[in-house]
């Protein structure tokens, strides 16, 4: 029983990482209706920026807002320079550009900061709670993820800009006819996704350590969480992220064949199962259209 509780808690804790990532994936999906493969690398790059700022001796409470601001501008720049000109090109064109971005950002980070694995200081200190069951870092990460989720929810649900962004993503033509600046909304969506990604990166880095490939498997788990919870629903994606963490941990502990080596395929298996049996995800809304 104790083992089960321990595995559940540690599953939720790892799930917090995936939930962070899933949230930033869904965020950008809401704004542009594409899955951005470079999302993880954007988050990694932001985390390196935060690390660099810390190295230069800036305090944490300046580094975080500065990193978020830099990432926000970076996201907008990527949209303006690379994605915007694509316009309404086919899905595959977007996929190719995302893969290109992935490679460019990954190489750029390796070029600037090389492949050395670096520790990243936790903003929440080193202690742990509940008799070493869960670290302060993990608790902080989960709390911040839920907070960001609540803020995003309020933004999209209750503000005019949030509504304009949803309208622009869903039906760009109609949005333009209503006077909404669709290009600006897409840029804003990229900026926000990059900002959320930078928060995810800074939260995750103390656990997985900082290096250019840190996000590779996390992105996969994040996709699994987002797909499981539903791409149309940020809260669902966060729940999905936690679920993936728990499932992965329990399967690794209780199914002897799986062990820790075969954990990653579980994420992939989850994606396949969900897409076959419930393509909108557990909490996704089915968008009904009568004709």
């Amino acid at each position: 029983m104790e083992l089960l509780i321990q595995q559940l808690v540690s599953g939720v804790a790892t799930g917090g990482i995936y939930a962070c990532m899933a949230l930033s994936i869904v965020m950008i999906y809401q704004a542009i209706h594409h899955l951005n493969f470079a999302q993880g690398e954007m988050a990694m790059f932001s985390t390196f920026i935060a690390w660099q700022l810390l190295q230069w001796g800036l305090p944490y409470w300046i580094v975080i807002p500065l990193t978020v601001a830099i990432s926000f501008s970076g996201g907008i720049a990527i949209e303006r320079i690379v994605i915007g000109p694509l316009g309404e090109a086919a899905v595959l064109s977007h996929a190719v550009v995302f893969i290109g971005l992935y490679a460019v950002i990954n190489s750029l980070a390796s070029f600037i900061w090389d492949f050395t694995t670096r520790p990243f200081p936790s903003p929440f200190g080193a202690g742990s709670q509940f008799g070493n069951l869960i670290s302060n870092q993990q608790i902080g990460m989960i709390a911040v993820t839920l907070l960001v989720l609540a803020l995003l929810y309020a933004f999209f649900r209750y503000t005019r800009v949030g509504l304009a962004m949803r309208a622009a993503a869903e039906n760009p033509t109609s949005a333009r006819l209503a006077g909404i600046r669709v290009g600006l909304m897409a840029a804003l969506g990229w900026g926000m996704a990059a900002a959320v990604g930078s928060i995810a990166g800074v939260l995750i880095a103390p656990i997985v350590f900082l290096e250019p490939n840190m996000m590779l498997s996390i992105l996969l788990y994040g996709f699994a969480g987002a797909v499981l919870g539903g791409l149309s629903n940020p809260a669902g994606a966060v729940a999905g992220g936690f679920a993936v963490g728990v499932i992965e941990n329990l399967a690794g502990t209780y199914v002897p064949v799986i062990g820790s080596e075969l954990k990653l395929p579980i994420a992939l298996l989850l994606i396949v199962i969900v897409l076959v049996f419930r393509p909108t995800g557990l909490f996704g809304r089915t968008i009904v259209q009568r004709v």
Partner: peptide, 26 residues
């Protein structure tokens, strides 16, 4: 100039009231 397009241009995932609010975005 408000254009009511061919095919109606509904924002199908938004609620009726959100659709109306989109119309007043300017």
């Amino acid at each position: 100039i408000a254009h009511v397009p061919e095919g109606r241009g509904t924002f199908i995932a938004l609620t009726v009231e959100e659709n109306l609010r989109c119309g007043a975005m300017t």
